[in-house]
C-alpha cells in the first residue's frame, strides 16, 4: 500500500471523528450544561446561590456549569482540528494523482489525437 493510499484510508477516521467530537460537544452543551445553568440561575435567587453549602445540589450544579465548559470547548476544537487534519490528508493525495494523470495523459495522447501532434 502506497503512502498516498494510506492517507486516503485514514482521512475518514479524522473526518468522522471530528464530526462526532463536535456533536458530543453540542449534546453535552445543549442537554447537560445549558439546562443546569438555566436551573441554577433561573430557579434560585442570588442569596440562595451564594448561601449554598458544600455538598448541596446547588454547589454540584455550580461545579458542573464551571468545570465542564473548560474541557468541552477544547473538545469541540479538537473536532475542528480533526476535520482540518482529515482535509489536509485528502489534499496531500492530489499532487501525486495529478502527476500520475499527467503521465497517463502523455501516454494516451497519441491515441486520442490519432497519432497527429
Amino acid at each position: 500500500m502506497s503512502e498516498k493510499e494510506i492517507q486516503l484510508k485514514v482521512f475518514p477516521i479524522f473526518a468522522v471523528g471530528g464530526f462526532m467530537l463536535i456533536m458530543i460537544g453540542f449534546i453535552v452543551g445543549a442537554f447537560v450544561v445549558g439546562p443546569t445553568a438555566n436551573s441554577y440561575f433561573g430557579e434560585n435567587t442570588k442569596q440562595t446561590r451564594d448561601s449554598a453549602v458544600e455538598g448541596s445540589s446547588l454547589v454540584d450544579d455550580l461545579v458542573t456549569i464551571s468545570s465542564i465548559p473548560r474541557w468541552l470547548e477544547p473538545l469541540i476544537f479538537l473536532g475542528v482540528a480533526s476535520f482540518m487534519f482529515g482535509i489536509g490528508l485528502e489534499f496531500s493525495t492530489i499532487p501525486a494523482l495529478l502527476h500520475r494523470r499527467g503521465k497517463t495523459m502523455k501516454a494516451a495522447f497519441p491515441k486520442i489525437t490519432g497519432g497527429s501532434k
Partner: peptide, 17 residues
C-alpha cells in the same frame, strides 16, 4: 430569576450549535 436562567444558558448551547 427565570430570565437570568435563560441568559446564562445561552452560551452553553448556542456556541456548540
Amino acid at each position: 430569576t427565570s430570565d437570568l436562567g435563560t441568559i446564562a444558558a445561552i452560551p452553553h448551547w448556542l456556541g456548540p450549535l
